[in-house]
């Protein structure tokens, strides 16, 4: 009696195992799904533009129940993103590690070859947007257009303070461009974070900035600051009065990428899962509304198209950094 029951039991066990296993393989053949919480690395500190975007994406995923597992934002701002890049490069579980990137994705590995980071090894998930830059002054200055700005900055010489987000950052690149293009000698003073830079301008502790729209929007709406020109191919819908530098005869266009990157060595199943997920997020009305409000540009890019976009951008950034002398 005892023998029979064990036999039946083990047979049942084997059968159920087989069934369970076949079900499992059947499932995984259809679609890969995250099996544990996904680490969403942010290359910048808490409260910055990238961090806000990641937390917004997290809210879209949670609200619309797009994933069975949570996405946990982890900030690794150290060393202009070097900390984040090294962490994701060596990710122990590449299928559950993704990263939200800025332009430091290109510039930091270029400037610190010792990190051994090769961005072509990372997995292209999806470009969510390109952030734009404008030239801003305080309304009290009375300056209304780029001509008046150039006149005032020329007169002030190196007493003219341009506040920005760090040496060799995007803001520094744009300041160098303006100095060269208009024969100015503005002094570049680095601060921590774009929000702080925007506040220095509104408080009259700086003469001009090259902030992203989202950073200056509050002060602009309160009538404290004015955009003079845009570093975009076309005028921005939110700031129709600010001409592009292209219109003004200086062909200079500059963007900040906002792209989701997967860890190197991510499996094909995970890759297509994340690509599909972020396409869905990009198309959601919540993200489209966010883009409109923050004056973000650009369409969704993924896969090989995104990879070749990275390579193109990397070459552009390299040329700019070399011109600045930040790269030998």
């Amino acid at each position: 009696m005892k023998k029979v029951s064990t036999g039946v039991l083990s047979l049942g066990l084997v059968l159920s195992l087989c069934f369970g296993f076949s079900l499992f393989t059947f499932n995984s053949a259809i679609a890969w799904e995250p099996k544990k919480p996904v680490e969403f690395i942010v290359m910048a500190g808490k409260g910055g533009g990238a961090d806000k975007a990641v937390r917004f994406i997290q809210s879209i995923i949670a609200k619309n129940k797009m994933s069975s597992k949570p996405y946990t934002p982890i900030n690794k701002p150290g060393g202009s993103g070097a900390e984040a890049l090294v962490y994701v490069k060596n990710a122990k579980d590449p299928d559950h590690t993704i990263m939200f990137t800025l332009n430091s994705f290109y510039t930091t590995p270029l400037r610190q070859p010792g990190l051994g980071v090769d961005i072509s090894k990372f997995t292209p998930v999806g470009r969510m947007a390109e952030d734009t830059f404008l030239l801003w002054v305080n309304k009290d200055s009375g300056i209304k257009n780029v001509d008046e700005f150039v006149k005032a900055a020329k007169a002030a010489g190196n007493k003219w303070i341009m506040a920005g987000t760090g040496k060799n950052s995007e803001d520094n690149i744009l300041t160098d461009f303006l100095n060269k293009a208009y024969g100015l000698n503005m002094k570049y003073v680095p601060y921590k974070g774009g929000g702080r830079v925007a506040k220095e301008l509104a408080g009259n502790n700086a003469n001009s900035t090259v902030n992203n729209p989202s950073e200056q929007l509050g002060f602009y709406q309160a009538g404290k600051t004015v955009p003079l020109g845009a570093f975009t191919p076309k005028r921005l819908p939110l700031f129709k009065d600010a001409p592009t530098f292209k219109e003004l005869g200086k062909d200079f266009v500059y963007f900040m990428q906002r792209t989701v990157v997967g860890a190197p060595g991510m499996s094909a199943g995970a890759k297509s899962y994340y690509q599909g997920l972020f396409k869905k997020i990009f198309d959601s009305s919540a993200w489209q509304g966010y883009m409109k409000k923050k004056s973000l540009q650009g369409g969704f890019l993924t896969g090989d198209a995104l990879m070749s976009y990275w390579m193109r951008e990397k070459a552009v950034q390299k040329a700019i950094l070399q011109k600045m002398g930040a790269l030998k």
Binding site: G45, K46, G47, D51, K52, R55, F56, S59, G195, R196, A198, K199, A202, L217, G218, F219, Q221, A222, K224, K293
Partner: peptide
């Protein structure tokens, strides 16, 4: 009032306000 966090915690709160559809700032 300025949309600028005075501490790391308010930086997160600020992010939250954006998610809830409020624009921090002088207005």
């Amino acid at each position: 009032t300025l949309g600028i966090p005075g501490s790391p915690t308010t930086a997160i709160l600020l992010g939250g306000m954006v998610i809830w559809g409020l624009e921090p700032g002088p207005l």
